[in-house]
Design a protein around this nucleic acid. Structure first.
Ligand SMILES: [Zn+2]
Ligand SMILES: [Zn+2]
Ligand SMILES: [Zn+2]
Ligand SMILES: [Zn+2]
Lengths: 174, 174
DNA sequence: CCTCTTGTTGAGATCTGATCTCAAGAAGCT
DNA sequence: AGCTTCTTGAGATCAGATCTCAACAAGAGG
């Protein structure tokens, strides 16, 4: 596990604020840093139950907010309804492509966009604290699936030269 | 009202799909195009009731989805919880700065970001259908308010040379 | 190590935004 | 006008998130 530094930061942050270091908080921290993907509170609750870590729903929600507050986690609505959480690696901004066909989430990094956002905020005298950029659409696979469904008796269409494979962090929903 | 063209498009879209042109649909269309700001379903319902236009909650939700489907409205979560709707002007993409202090929403346009998004999608073989970009933080006024609150007996701080004023489309929440 | 204070937890109630149900109503075709 | 089919409205329902409050335990102090 490579979260020794983050763990230390979390504990220090808690103590600095007079918050207590509880077993539940540590367990939640471990869990969210063990899950290398975007995960929602309910899934987190289940996966902790599955590991025989006892924790209640309310505590999960409360402490997820705490993790976000201290900058170790990010909270976003990636699909439609639920909030998804992911642990944050300092200095590594990324954003998301969300496939509406299969639910997959792909991360991308764009220093150019980051820079432009900075310019825009400066121009408006705005002090940004966070941002959300997500692009919804269809991934390669889902586009092909849809095209095949539309005209069934026809194949050998010239497939794209090379299929871009990026980190896919969330599988399709059940 | 400058929505003659959009109104025509809406009616045509309805007929093309075999949907009916009802009084409720027309009223909702008028209302959302009359409100030049980001507004949620509940507010829309209230403002229509205030104008003695009878319409039910379910119908508002149903037909807002219809407007989004035909491309005349955009649906986004700008604050945290509710969906906000705004009417769309064709070919005029814009994104949002959201002040977490006063709730104000400011729109901005960035062709540069739009272009970069296009490149990213191409690189990933992703077919985008929509996007959300919002930057949260504090507006000029709220930054000053906070600074003044933090050290009360001190003034004459060098105010910024010129205060950028952009279209502010949503007032602070009640 | 024991005690006291005070922040934290857990089970379930509650809230909120959004969607669904289904009988009554009305577009629009003829 | 008559008929078919889509649409509406009132209220039930759903899902995700938050709140309540008594029991609990972290951590300071002795
Ligand atoms: Zn897909
Ligand atoms: Zn991510
Ligand atoms: Zn503000
Ligand atoms: Zn806008």
């Amino acid at each position: 596990m490579s979260d020794a530094r983050e763990r230390q930061k979390f504990l220090q942050w808690l103590r600095d604020r007079g918050h207590r270091v509880t077993a539940e908080r540590l367990a939640l921290f471990e869990e969210i840093f063990a899950q290398h993907r975007h995960i929602d509170a309910e899934e987190l609750l289940d996966s902790m139950k599955a590991r025989a870590l006892k924790i209640s729903r309310a505590t999960v929600y409360r402490n997820l907010d705490l993790l976000v507050e201290c900058g170790l986690a990010r909270k976003q609505r990636l699909g439609q309804n639920r909030f998804l959480y992911e642990h944050v690696h300092p200095g590594q901004r990324h954003d998301h492509l969300v496939c509406t066909g299969c639910g997959r989430v792909v991360e991308f990094v764009s220093p150019g966009i980051a820079a432009l956002q900075g310019e825009i905020c400066r121009a408006h005298g705005f002090s940004p604290t966070s941002h959300t950029l997500q692009i919804s659409g269809l991934c390669n696979a889902c586009v092909q699936k849809r095209d095949e469904a539309q005209r069934p008796p026809e194949r050998a269409l010239p497939s794209p030269a090379h299929v871009e494979t990026a980190r896919t962090l969330s599988g399709p929903p059940p």
